[in-house]
Design a protein around this nucleic acid. Sequence first.
DNA 1: AATGAATGAGGATTCATTCAT
DNA 2: CATGAATGAATCCTCATTCAT
Lengths: 209, 209, 209, 209
Amino acid sequence: MATRESVPRSKRRATSPKAQGRRSELLAIAAELFATKGYTQTTVRDIGDAAGILSGSLYHHFDSKEAMLDEILRDFMGSLHAAFAEIVAGGESPRQVLEGLVRCSFGTIHERPHAVALYQNESALLAHLPDFTFVARTSQDITGLWLGVLAAGQESGDFRADLEPGVVYRFIRDSVWGAVGWYKPDGKLAHSTLADQYLTMLYGGLLRA
Amino acid sequence: MATRESVPRSKRRATSPKAQGRRSELLAIAAELFATKGYTQTTVRDIGDAAGILSGSLYHHFDSKEAMLDEILRDFMGSLHAAFAEIVAGGESPRQVLEGLVRCSFGTIHERPHAVALYQNESALLAHLPDFTFVARTSQDITGLWLGVLAAGQESGDFRADLEPGVVYRFIRDSVWGAVGWYKPDGKLAHSTLADQYLTMLYGGLLRA
Amino acid sequence: MATRESVPRSKRRATSPKAQGRRSELLAIAAELFATKGYTQTTVRDIGDAAGILSGSLYHHFDSKEAMLDEILRDFMGSLHAAFAEIVAGGESPRQVLEGLVRCSFGTIHERPHAVALYQNESALLAHLPDFTFVARTSQDITGLWLGVLAAGQESGDFRADLEPGVVYRFIRDSVWGAVGWYKPDGKLAHSTLADQYLTMLYGGLLRA
Amino acid sequence: MATRESVPRSKRRATSPKAQGRRSELLAIAAELFATKGYTQTTVRDIGDAAGILSGSLYHHFDSKEAMLDEILRDFMGSLHAAFAEIVAGGESPRQVLEGLVRCSFGTIHERPHAVALYQNESALLAHLPDFTFVARTSQDITGLWLGVLAAGQESGDFRADLEPGVVYRFIRDSVWGAVGWYKPDGKLAHSTLADQYLTMLYGGLLRA
DNA sequence: AATGAATGAGGATTCATTCAT
DNA sequence: CATGAATGAATCCTCATTCAT
């Protein structure tokens, strides 16, 4: 069930002190392009151009274009799962934990919009690439965390019991992550304010009491 | 003397009586592939193979791969907007209209899952293709319809007034359309039942009263 | 040495009374397109469009696109050679015969500009197509006719003797046929007037006497 | 931070020191094939084969097959116009200038036969390609130079006045450039000797004085 | 005589990747 | 570390041609 299987040694390069910095820069550039234009629509030349080097030089840092995507997603899925797990482990009430998860999600959208968009938009691709099953696996782990909270909330009487947790989870997940498609990190609508509004709707519904 | 004026190539597709059937078949095949594998990941050969003809033969029916996507999306966006507009024009209460829009959305997911998925997943691509501005345009028209209903509901007192309609719309839209990613048309969860649950959450919220 | 070898029977269709008219129309259309856009750049669809039928229907009249070119050129080369031969056989003085040949050339440019242009412009193509050696052969026959006249003129003392007939022939041929590239059949410069000017230059030169 | 502005693709071809040599080689190969087989009949694979590389590798040097033609013709038209302009600017008598232009033309046929043939034979194609209007434009500039000399010669009394300069120019141009179709650079007929004969005919005419 | 769907071969172009320098 | 020339496979598309209707 674990998500952190280690990467085959041949795939990860020797991490010289400053080389890591360059790697991160390149991955950030790639992530932005992947998110903006789509992974397939982004050429290694696009990445090279944006980084100021020739496309062939990328292969000094990464084994392949796919390896870049792998690293981006592996890092993202790992931290996301870790962050969620920490919140769940906090031992607060289901209602407070759920609020924490939602706020954490919006925080992630704010801080790492490209990785989120990648995770959201490239599902068709990821499902076809054999090396990316870890994404689905971590996804399921995360789903497990959320379902646990929802079940606990129904048990404790906090959440209404006439809804299927699976449906509720997907409802929340899709609405929250969907915000990555339109949320502007530097707009006037702060991500915490957005979280407030979403939690209000989520908890109280749309109708006037 | 023969008629010599040359017909513009793009207009040549005279809708002959029976040819339409074949076109529709091919478009359905293409839509499924586009939705499943992604537009860029789908080759014209994939489409030809699935249709039992050679890839080159597709060009007897369509000008290009892009033209197929265009036709699929144009048709979809058109009917969707029309269906929504009809519901809005029904003159019912905001609450009833909103319910109608949500149920219509789930019905569309059920009946035309591939087109919905396309519309959902290929946003990065569509934003970069100059010939597909109509998608964004129709999208805005649809947004206008929903915002109108939400505003009317706030005015009438049906909907709570402490939420921004723009945020509410996106919340609903993303949660509802997101279902295309996991809803199984032939599963045990009927789309109308799904709509019920979503409306319950949407209207009443997650917390026990 | 003869030029009129008969066409293989399988290649020429049964000549029903009116079918010939249609054939001629189609060939005229094809010739114009071949001359204007170039043979390779002209698609059978272009021809079909211009004729008001589908490209496939052309194959009811001709075996292939190449067969159309063959028929156009064979007819043209044949009549041209015949016309030149008749002038040469007229028994007039070399100077009069040469004048006749030049006038006949301009008349041909006027009346059959497309075939002339084809003959002029598609030399690179014709040299590579094995079925079109007849063009080069007839061309040589025609060259023979002109060289004969030039030699006779030098012998008779009409033409200056310090020029190689081969060079003179090419000089005349290129300048005269080259006119097909800019002569306008319906312009104010009549082809006979043009012939006058060319003959003046040809015979008297550019310098003031 | 890397430089992120992307360089326009068409401008990427930085003229690196040694890369120019390879480009020129490839262009020379392409020009010969274009001239011999025709532009359309020449495939990029033909060019690649002749150059000893794969066809796809050509795109490392040039944007497209058309770009190769563009570069060949642009360079040719430019030098031709420059050479003619320099002769005209020399300030000699019209008769001497005209002789210079003719000799320069034969020199060009001798040294750059492929480019000349291209310019001569692909008129139908060039007229249809929107990016090649510069050929027609430079052509007109060149025509202007010749017409100026012819007019000056008529004014000075060197050239006979009963001929239209426009017709005279086309007569000379077509006869001279036409030689590219049969002149053999390594044959026994030197290009300067050929120029002699042409000038003799041009100035003195065919008839014995 | 003509249609329209389909073939099959080929053509230009793209692009991830390699490697000698 | 980076360059730049080259690879080789794949992609979209074109087009002459065929044939059942």
